[in-house]
Design a protein around this nucleic acid. Structure first.
Lengths: 117, 117
DNA sequence: CATATACTTAAGCATATGCTTAACCAAACC
DNA sequence: GGTTTGGTTAAGCATATGCTTAAGTATATG
């Protein structure tokens, strides 16, 4: 498994901003133009375009130009990468807690039997 | 559902750095001291402590001092928050794709029946 | 053809981030 | 009590981020 650190950096960084998460949220309900993405945000259009560039750079969003409007859509794969990383860490400490639980159980068991070992 | 935007900002920002993810990864296998966390990283101890502060600020990690060594542990809840946010977005566009699939199915159905509507 | 619309590009700026080194503090060791 | 060990605090600095305004381009629309 290749150590793909760069995309994770970009995906998590992209998600670390509430405006960008708002855009992802909007796009998860369906495609939208830059103007539509900008409407709910209290900032200039160029600022929104910069956020969009971060999202595209992370692979979370892709866009194409149709006439004079740019249509943006979500790109599920990148979100999956982030979700998977988190899930893997969770699995690790869950297993660790399992082993800890086993140890405690053994311990309890041992003390019932009169603390051998 | 309260709009808890601040912790998500911090959690995603904390995860956006490979050194910090490395620390989380290490801690997901069990508690560690600051020195242990620093060992694999090519940077000064104060830099590591600053990363640790970011992780603690996000709620991903908590630590306590035992004698002269600081013991750090992972805090599962924060990771869960991030995972949940992503999962919710995924659910949204999956449902959207379902509806889209329904539409296409209806469409195909309609064209079989001779393109009504 | 003229004008409005929907971006796009460029430049500039304030603040935040990610380090560094130097100096300091307190628990453990000899 | 002196020294090593493990961490902490402070200051400084280079670069990155997140905006802004101003000006430009290309596609509709009347």
């Amino acid at each position: 498994m290749l150590n793909q650190t760069v995309p994770l950096d970009r995906v998590f960084h992209a998600l670390a901003d509430p405006s960008r998460r708002g855009m992802v949220e909007r796009l998860s309900r369906g495609p939208a133009s830059v103007g539509e993405l900008a409407r709910p945000l209290a900032m200039s259009l160029p600022a929104v375009v910069q956020h969009l560039a971060v999202l595209e750079g992370s692979g979370l969003v892709r866009s194409e130009k149709v006439g004079r409007v740019r249509v943006c859509r979500i790109e599920p794969a990148a979100l999956g990468t982030a979700e998977r990383w988190i899930a893997e860490r969770r699995t690790l400490w869950e297993h660790r807690l399992d082993r800890l639980g086993d140890l405690l159980a053994e311990d309890a068991d041992a003390s019932h039997r009169g603390r051998e070992s």
